[in-house]
Each structure stands twice: as C-alpha cells, then as structure tokens.
Amino acid sequence: MSLPLKTRVFWALYKTFEFAPAMQQPADKVRKASDLRKKMLALGPSRPVVGGTNKGAFAVESSLTLDDGTELPLRIHRPTASPQGPLPVVVNFHGGGWVSGDVHQSEWWASSVAAEAKVVVVSVEYRLAPENPFPIPPEDCYAATRWTAGHAVELGIDPAKLAVMGDSAGGNLAAVVSMMARDRGGPAVALQVLLYPSVDLVGSYASEDENAHAPVLGKKDLDNVPRLYFHGVETEMSDPYASPLRGKHEGLPPAVIQTAQYDPLRDQGYAYADALRAAGVPVRHTNYVRAVHGYISLPGVVPAAHQALAEVVQVLGENFG
C-alpha cells in the first residue's frame, strides 16, 4: 500500500490514541467512543490535519424543527464575497457510518466549497444510530433538504440550483435524498455529489478485502455498522433508501462520484456510477489514487483532498454558473 508519507505518519499516530473505533463498538458503547473521537479531533494539535474554516467563508448556526418537535442543528456556510442575487445551495451530510460524526467534521470541506464555488452550504446535524436507527437519518436529511428549498428567500438562495452532497455514510444519504426527492415530488435536486459513498449494505466487493486493514475505515467497521444502523430486520438492508444501488435510478439528477484507491468502499462507487449510467443519468466519476477513505476531513495529511475540492468546485461552476 503506497500511501503518502503524511498519511502514513498520521495513521500511525492516530492508532496510538484511538483505542475504541466507534463503528466497531457494541450499541451501548458507540456514543462514548464517538464523543471521544470528536474531542480528539477538536484539540488544537489536530488543526494541521483536519483543517479549519476557509477564510473566504463564514458560518452561522441555525436549526429546523421537524413535525415531531425534534430540532435539527444546521451549520450554514456562506462566501464572504459573493455575486449579487440568490446563490446556489448545497445541502451537505457528514460521514461517520450513521453512528458518529457531526457538522464540524466537514468544516474545512464545507467552508471551502462555499468560498470557492460561491455557494451556500447547509450542513445538517441529522440524528444518529443506534439511538435513532434507519430510516430516521435519511428522513432527517430529506426534511432538511425540503426545509432549505422552502426557506429560499430567508437563506438568499436559488432553489432551482440545489445540490446534495455527502461523504461515506453522508454520500449514501445524499444519494437517498435524491431518490426521495424524485419519488415524493420534490424538491428538485439538480446535482448529487457523492464522496466515497456507501451505496450497498447487502453485497460484497473486492475492495473490501483488498483494503480490509486500510487507514480510517476497514472491513471490521463495515461488518459491524449494519448491527448499529438497523433494527435487526435484515430486509431493511436491501431497502433502496438504505442501499440505493438496489433501487431504480431513472430520473435521478446528474452525479459526481469520487472514490479513493485505498478504501474498502471504492468498488461500491464504481458500481453506482455504472448503475446510474445504465439508467441514463450523467455521471462524472474520479478515483483518487493514493487516497484513503475520509480524505475530505483530512486535508492536511491526504494531498488528494485539495484536488478533490477543485473538481467539485469546477463541477458546481459548470452546473450553476
């Protein structure tokens, strides 16, 4: 495995401190492990690894209230210098295997997309399993997307230029929200940006064994997550809103799919690109060599993160002007 030196050094140090990977824990220990990981990554010394808020953007905190009274926090990134008129908007869903992570995990990425693409990025703090299992996370994300489109004037956005974006489990959620929007009559999604997405919780892929012990995400994580995300009902795993590869893809918005060479999820991204193309959906797929899972949250140690950002900014510009 020919990883960049910075990536190798980071992973060696990280393994020294993370004793309990959140996605490998039993249900009653997931939250403690997840909270510990968040505290580690929030420490000052981690800033050179995870990056910070892009200087060309600023963030404000907001929230939306669901029909059942649940309040979902939102972190809204806006470019400090932007053109006149309503801006395009990107609704962003963080990764973390549906059981960990938060909006701050993708701070560098979300703020950089806002600053460089001149768009508003709405990052969603959806509820996490195992306390809130499937289908709660995708329903939260769909509700946040509807809320964003419905508050266009307040947010200063153009709802006709709305994209969804996510990495890993967040990539799954972005793909699922695209399906929900198609199936439920809106809102209109113009583009889906899927970063090393998990799209099939049923099948097995060669990249899972090839990268079983890769940095950040390994086969043990993939094997345990379904026990945490679902109620124990096996049929839920093949539901298209859980495994979008298993659904119908006609009528979905154009997609940007990014994958990483050293990622057990890599081949799922390839499979989803093929499925979308077969349904007539325009797809741009890039596999980043020498990159590992989670690179958009690790810009200081995975060089490909910056190239990946440039690609997404370019595609947003091409689609939204």
Results as ranks from 00 to 15, higher is better:
Lys248Asp: 11
Gln258Gly: 15
Ala214Lys: 02
Pro244Met: 12
Ala273Gln: 08
Glu236Asn: 09
Ser238Leu: 03
Met237Glu: 09
Arg227Asn: 13
Gly247Phe: 00
Asn224Ile: 04
Asp221Pro: 10
Val225His: 12
Ala255Leu: 09
His249Cys: 06
Pro226Ala: 05
Phe230Asp: 14
Ile257Tyr: 11
Ala214Thr: 01
Tyr272Asp: 13
Gln261Trp: 11
Asp267Cys: 04
Ser243Gly: 09
Asn224Val: 03
Ala255Glu: 09
Lys248Thr: 01
Asp221Ile: 01
Asp263His: 04
Gly232Ser: 07
Val233Gly: 08
Leu217His: 07
Ala275Trp: 01
Leu222Asp: 05
Gln261Met: 14
Ala212Tyr: 00
Asp239Gly: 13
Asp223Val: 02
His249Pro: 11
Ala260Gly: 12
Leu228Asn: 12
Leu245His: 11
Arg227Trp: 01
Leu252Ile: 03
Leu217Trp: 05
Thr259Cys: 09
Ala279Asp: 04
Gly247Gln: 04
Ala275His: 03
Ala260Cys: 15
Tyr270Ala: 13
Pro254Glu: 10
Thr259Asp: 06
Tyr262Met: 00
Ala260Ile: 08
Val283Pro: 14
Phe230Lys: 07
Asp239Ala: 13
Arg227Phe: 06
Tyr270Arg: 11
Pro253Ile: 08
Pro282Ile: 02
Gly251Ser: 07
Gln261Thr: 12
Ala279Tyr: 03
Ala242Met: 03
Asp221Gly: 10
Leu265Gln: 06
Lys219Met: 03
Thr235Ala: 15
Ser243Asn: 05
Ser238Ile: 11
Pro254Tyr: 06
Gly269Gln: 06
Arg266Pro: 08
Ala242Asn: 08
Asp263Cys: 12
Ser238Glu: 08
Ala212Gln: 02
Leu265Arg: 06
Pro244Val: 00
Pro226Leu: 01
Pro240Ser: 06
Lys220Arg: 11
Val216Ser: 12
Arg266Thr: 10
Pro244Leu: 12
Gln268Pro: 13
Val225Gln: 14
Gln268Phe: 08
Tyr241Met: 12
Glu236Ile: 07
Ala271Trp: 02
Pro215Lys: 04
Pro240Trp: 00
Tyr229Leu: 15
Asp267Ile: 07
Glu236Trp: 00
Tyr241Glu: 12
Gln258Phe: 15
Ala275Phe: 02
Lys219Phe: 05
Tyr270Asp: 14
Ser238Ala: 14
Tyr270Thr: 13
Val283Cys: 15
Gln261Phe: 11
Pro240Glu: 04
Ser238Pro: 06
Ala275Arg: 07
Tyr262Pro: 01
Leu276Cys: 13
Arg246Cys: 11
Gly232Arg: 00
Leu228Lys: 10
Asp263Gln: 05
Val216Gly: 10
Val256Ser: 07
Val233Lys: 08
Leu228His: 10
Ala278Val: 00
Gly247Cys: 05
Glu236Gln: 15
Gln258Ser: 15
Val233Ser: 10
Asp239Met: 07
Lys220Gln: 13
Tyr241Phe: 13
Lys248Tyr: 01
Glu236Met: 02
Ala212Gly: 01
Lys220Asn: 11
